[in-house]
Amino acid sequence: MISRAGTPSGAQTPPADVAPDDSRLDDTTLVVRARDGDVRAYEQLVRRYQGPMFRLAVRMLASRGDAEDVVQEVFLTAWRSLASLHEEAAFVAWLYRMITNRCLNVIRDRHTTVDVDLAQRESRSPGSRPERTVEVSEQLAAVTEALQRLTGEQRACWLLREVHGRSYEEIAQAVGVTTTAVRGRIARARAQLTEMMAPWR
């Protein structure tokens, strides 16, 4: 029992007590515990939010491998800097902001790399078909491809708003622009996506 909290394998055997399963605890409780150094509480947060964070990253980067790397980095960074998160309830917004920033950095790095290395560009340009493991419909495949032709910031704004339902204020903070600029980027993204998916002329 005592060793449970300290063993790396992390308490797979269910204890006899009636304590609630961590998976039913609210976010704030888990965040407070995690900040206290409770690894199991943090694992619960990881399990709860790695899905949406991964889906954002994979749509941003069109690569499962890169997306998983970003998700791993962000959850590790979040663990290290939990102490600086003063508002526990803001944990999810904080994760979205870090994922967005990290993805935009990866995209910027790719652009730097393509200037240097053309071969790399071949393997990463949108035309070379991103890894296709997520598309269940043709329309979905089309929008995934179309998304990659937007700028990183447009893509982030559109995904955060339309797919992940985040507020304009939160998106503005995540991307580092004004809410007016966010609305503009979303409008532009919407127009371009519509056009690329099914040209109206």
């Binding site: 899905g51 998983e68 493991t133 979905l140 339309e162």
Partner: peptide, 13 residues
């Protein structure tokens, strides 16, 4: 198709 993205449950490895 946005609705499909919202409903997407793709998980990482």
């Amino acid at each position: 198709v946005t609705g499909e993205l919202v409903a997407d449950t793709t998980e990482p490895a």
